[in-house]
């Protein structure tokens, strides 16, 4: 277990957004109601240049959350030591308010596939994920958050529900959780599960951050709804309702809007953040 006595900065229970370089000037001008920013770890693992200069500048004014998309925590192989070293370096100089990653895999046989791929929920995969999280937390010297995935299919071999699996991972490793409400809605629609029951079963006291993002609507071979976690539009209404349901249980938490494709002008992103601020205001602290 980690030494939790070391103080780190923390994320405020307020709206944040995923940072996009095209919004740099807008954010420096007037970021309201956004109070913190999230960056993808891998985009800031270069040697220098504008990306790192911008991040250093933003970190002077905002709490920063580092969100990894490439560690492959659910991978069958061992974690890439070079990538772990790059992450340790980034967390070392930036001292972010949070580090989070996904319950997914993306690397196999030293091929990085640039997608968050699913894994079955069994005792073997549970042990593997827990070992990898131990290794990450050991390496960066702090507790991390693990995010629930968007699923388009299920593994017949799974013996745990996703919420039980995540609960057990936090129990074994001491890690926190990042609850992506859009992912809950996408997965539950795709796999015919009840999203509210999912939220109710989630280990809510472990949630250090909430994500919201947009999805696309499609259909599978049989005409069943198939939602795609695209992050390319505004958050859908049923996802906002699900957020209200979550916040009733959890109270205010750091709440992030993700918009990674078809990136809108800052005003549109700030409007989504304002809607998030309203949702947070409605619940007692």
């Amino acid at each position: 277990m980690l030494d939790s006595s070391i103080p780190f900065p923390t994320l405020p229970p307020a709206p944040g957004v995923g940072y996009k370089p095209q919004h740099f000037q807008d954010i420096l001008g007037d970021a309201r109601p956004v109070e913190w920013l999230e960056v993808h770890a891998e985009n800031y693992m270069g040697e220098g240049g504008r990306p790192l200069a911008q991040l250093r500048h933003l970190a002077e004014r905002f709490a920063i959350s580092v969100h990894g998309v490439g560690l492959s925590i659910g991978g069958e192989g061992r974690l890439d030591p070079d990538h772990l070293a790059r992450l340790k370096h980034l967390c070392g100089w930036l001292n972010p308010a949070s580090f989070s990653e996904h319950l997914a895999w993306s690397t196999h046989d030293s091929h990085f596939l640039n997608d968050l791929l699913p894994l079955p929920y069994t005792s073997e995969t549970l042990q593997r994920v827990a070992d990898h999280i131990d290794e990450v937390q050991e390496s960066i010297g702090r507790r991390m958050l693990l995010e629930n995935p968007s699923s388009y299919l299920a593994f017949e071999e799974s013996t745990y529900s996703e919420t039980d699996f995540l609960s057990e991972v936090t129990r074994r490793t001491g890690c926190g959780l990042l609850l992506d409400v859009n992912n809950v809605f996408v997965s539950c629609t795709n796999l015919e599960l009840d999203p509210r029951a999912y939220i109710d079963a989630f280990p809510i006291d472990k949630v250090g951050e909430i994500h919201l993002g947009g999805h696309d609507e499609d259909e599978d071979d049989h005409g069943a709804p198939l939602l795609i976690d695209s992050h390319g539009r505004e958050v859908a209404d049923p996802v906002w309702s699900l957020l209200d349901h979550l916040l009733e249980r959890s109270g205010p938490r750091p709440l992030l809007i993700e918009w990674d494709a078809n990136i809108p002008p800052w005003s549109e992103l700030a409007a989504e953040a304002a809607r998030a601020a309203k949702a947070l205001e409605r619940v007692p602290a």
Partner: peptide
């Protein structure tokens, strides 16, 4: 071994 969550093979969901 991959399904659509409704008892059918995952098919095009992959």
């Amino acid at each position: 071994g991959l399904s659509d969550g409704r008892g059918q093979p995952a098919g095009a969901r992959f």
